[in-house]
Amino acid sequence: MIRFDSVSFRYRGDAPLALDGVCLALEAGELVAVVGANGSGKSTLARLCDGLLEPTSGSVTVDGLDSVDPASLWKVRSMVGMVFQDPDDQIVGTVVEEDCAFGPENLGLPSDEIRVRVDSSLRAVGLDGLERREPHLLSEGQKQRLAVAGALAMRPRYLVFDEPTAMLDPVGRRAVLEITERLAHAEGHGVLVVSHDIGGVARADRVIGLAGGRVVFDGAPEGLMDDASMLLRVGLSLPPAARLAAALRARGLDVPAPAADAESVVASLWR
């Protein structure tokens, strides 16, 4: 598991703490959403997961390996795949398959092994058939799926997504959210999604809410959805589905408290 043990972080010596005493754990097979308003430290948290940043105090370990120990740093990075917000900021190759191969190439794997990984990763995100396409001819959604494939090709145990849907249209967004869910629940990766996309939060097994660099919420998404003041604190607004659920309860219908989206409202009416 990825484990944060009272992690604090500041960008410069005189800067305020971006993260303040954060403790959390991400297990394999678990889909965890990290939410928080602008400047709450959620992107910092993502970058600490694989040693891109070094904690000012406390420690981050991945399956027991220290994330900043030079002896295990590269092992940690190959175990934790990262996907960032803007797909154009992470695509290195001039054609799709070459970009997907970048990670395994850096790991020094033999060509035939790289080929196997590239093919299976591109298939996993539905980009097979586009191996020779140039990245700038892909849609934003396809580019982001390519970024996911590039991370998968390293065969990581954990995947960390930093606002993966912020640049995407609804179709691209749904595709990426489905992939995050499948990777965790069907394929057993530990998946951490930093996002202010309420749809992504609804699918998570667990939500971690950050405010001012501290963890202010850690629990099931249902516990967050009805708490308007907590939602506001972590940069989310009360989802329309939750307001509808409340209105239905007021009308005597047995709709359990949490409702993040239309599906959960209808599911509870269906019972």
């Binding site: 891109l52 290195v92 070459e98």
Partner: peptide, 26 residues
């Protein structure tokens, strides 16, 4: 900004200079 973000992304994908790299198509 992009150069900075790209460097981070490359590091996250284990790029540490060209030494020890292999290629998809040798």
């Amino acid at each position: 900004r992009r150069a900075d973000a790209l460097a981070t992304a490359m590091e996250a994908r284990c790029y540490r200079g060209s030494g020890g790299r292999t290629r998809l198509v040798e």
